Amino acid sequence: MQASLTRWLRPALAGATLLGSALLAGCGSDDAETRSIKVGTMSGPESEVMEVAVNLAKERYDLDVEIIEFTDYVSPNAALADGSLDANAFQHAPYLNSMIEDRGYDLAVAGYTFVYPIGAYSEKHDSIEALPEGALIALPNDPTNGGRAMILMHNSGLITLDDPENLEATPVNVVDNPHGFEFREIEAAQLPRVLPDVDLAFINNTFAQPAGLQLEDALLREGPESPYVNLIAVRAGDQEREEIQQLVSAYQSDEVAEKALELFDGGAVPGWE
């Protein structure tokens, strides 16, 4: 009987010991838990700018921030909405609003970053006046950045839109095209690659700078008055979360502004000043 009881108690006691150890270990990990968040950015110089904010967040607030890089404009909001990210920093308000409307995301603005002006570049022509009749013009295929290009052309007198206040204008909104321009809508990240094959391409500075294109060389470009300031987006309700506000504070710093000036050669204007 004693031997049987001993055989029965031994694994039970061992299990209790392991459970107790696990509970103690769990308590210890809670006490020593490191505060951390994940933020999504566009791969390239925008990530390099964010790295400065990451280092400042660690130095000033002991906050660990992991950067998750993306190469398209759709995935960062999907990842934020499903909880894979705590924040993202790559888009302006018109684009965020269109994604919220189209996809039902419950997202909000936590802070502002930079204006990255869009420009029209050409490898075939030295000026807008040199564009031939029927020129092939490449546009970003996402609604708001495509709209930026259309409005810039309207404001420059190249075309006439039915509503120049429509931030999501597309070629179907052109009511007068006196030069017979042909438009091709292409994913924003691919526009530098098609530049040799078109007469003109409207390229976000996010993708222009890594491709060796300087905003000063653009045949058309937005000015500093552009309403398209980029932002840090979060899930609705997280705007005042301590870690998020610390990330925003670290980003809106002189150090980050100086890094952006270096990387974008004047093509990034602080949107928080």
Rank of each mutant, 00 (worst) to 15 (best):
E33V: 14
Y116C: 03
L261R: 11
S226C: 04
Y251E: 04
M50S: 00
T34G: 12
P117R: 10
L139Q: 06
S127Q: 05
S47R: 06
I137R: 06
Y121K: 05
P192D: 07
A53V: 00
P270A: 12
I232T: 02
A138K: 06
N145P: 07
S98Q: 15
I151M: 13
G271S: 08
L19V: 15
H179D: 12
I68Q: 01
L56K: 05
G119F: 05
S127R: 01
E187F: 11
M42H: 12
D142L: 10
G104H: 03
A3Y: 13
F181E: 03
E225I: 02
V256H: 04
D86S: 00
K38S: 14
E51I: 02
P140L: 09
R184M: 15
E262G: 07
G147Y: 08
E216N: 10
A208E: 03
R148D: 03
Q252F: 06
P178S: 06
T71Y: 09
R235L: 04
C27A: 14
V234H: 00
A14Q: 09
G119I: 01
Q214N: 13
S84F: 04
I186T: 11
F114Y: 11
D238R: 01
P224I: 12
P45L: 13
C27N: 14
I203V: 09
Y228I: 02
H125V: 15
V174M: 11
N204Q: 14
G134C: 05
P171M: 08
W272K: 10
T6S: 12
G157P: 04
S156E: 06
P117W: 04
L167S: 12
S36L: 07
D82L: 02
D199Q: 06
I100R: 13
A32Y: 13
A268Q: 04
R7D: 03
W272E: 05
F114R: 08
L261S: 14
Y105E: 00
G40Y: 00
F181R: 08
P178L: 09
P196H: 03
R7Q: 10
N141W: 01
V175S: 14
G28P: 01
A135M: 07
E258L: 13
F90C: 00
F90Q: 02
M1C: 12
D86F: 01
D72A: 12
A189D: 11
G180M: 04
A93N: 12
D163M: 11
E222P: 09
K58H: 13
Y61M: 07
P171Q: 07
H154A: 11
G28A: 15
A233N: 10
M1Q: 13
M42V: 14
A233D: 11
Y61S: 11
E273N: 14
L80D: 02
G212L: 11
E51F: 00
S253F: 09
D72T: 14
A189Y: 13
R148G: 02
L56V: 03
V234S: 00
E51L: 09
G146A: 09
A218D: 04
S226H: 08
G104A: 07
H125G: 11
E133P: 09
G266Y: 04
V115S: 05
A260F: 04
P11Q: 10
R241V: 02
E216I: 11
F264W: 13
T41F: 07
V256D: 01
